[in-house]
């Protein structure tokens, strides 16, 4: 069971020194942005394009970055907006996580069998995530999967902290429902 939000450990997003320039931000943040966009529902084939667009915005808004704050929540806010625009522009060819989830590169795969099981579970979660409205999905990804503090998430998404928690609550309810339905379809519940 998850702890209550206020009890949840809030590990630092990054222990590395804050980036001094765009190049360092790119090096530190590339894998994070890639993974976050994937979690938000950007298809693998579109990831290079959308990641590129995220860092275009990072470059253009570099002067807004507060080096006293962690990099990841700032990148998250930009990735959230770019992914939202990407989905909006591509609404006629609605981006969905398809079966290609299982082909994604997964960190630290212990064995082929376990990796396959793990990939299937990840695919199920990420398919379920796509049933949640983007603004709620993003909060859940940042809080529950990336374990970022809610105050940073709210800041990045430009919403009050209370709104962030409301979105998290709605997202969790929706995710539990979606996952239970998926498990029933698979005969596992």
């Amino acid at each position: 069971m998850l702890a209550q939000p206020h009890d949840k450990p809030k590990p630092s997003a990054s222990v590395t020194a804050p980036p001094a320039n765009f190049d360092e931000a790119y090096t530190q943040g590339f894998a994070y942005v890639w993974s976050t966009l994937r979690r938000m529902g950007v298809r693998e084939a579109s990831l290079p394009d959308v990641t590129h667009d995220v860092f275009i915005v990072v470059f253009r808004r570099w002067n807004d970055f507060d080096s006293a704050r962690p990099l990841r929540p700032w990148l998250f806010g930009i990735a959230y907006r770019v992914a939202s625009d990407h989905f909006a522009l591509a609404h006629q060819r609605r981006e969905r996580l398809d079966a290609d989830v299982a082909t994604d590169h997964v960190a630290h795969e212990p064995s082929p069998e376990r990796a396959l099981e793990s990939a299937q579970r990840r695919a199920m979660v990420h398919e379920a995530l796509q049933e949640i409205p983007m603004e709620q999905r993003a909060v859940l990804i940042a809080f529950d999967l990336e374990e970022q503090p809610m105050n940073e998430i709210a800041l990045a998404m430009e919403v009050p902290v209370k709104t962030g928690y409301s979105r998290l609550r709605l997202a969790r309810e929706a995710l539990v429902g979606a996952l239970d339905r998926a498990l029933r379809r698979r005969g596992e519940r």
Binding site: F30, W34, S35, A107, R121, R122, V125, H126, L145
Partner: peptide, 11 residues
């Protein structure tokens, strides 16, 4: 299920 989903997607 969520614990598996916390693994990052590696580029």
């Amino acid at each position: 299920l969520m614990s598996d989903a916390r693994e990052m997607f590696e580029p």
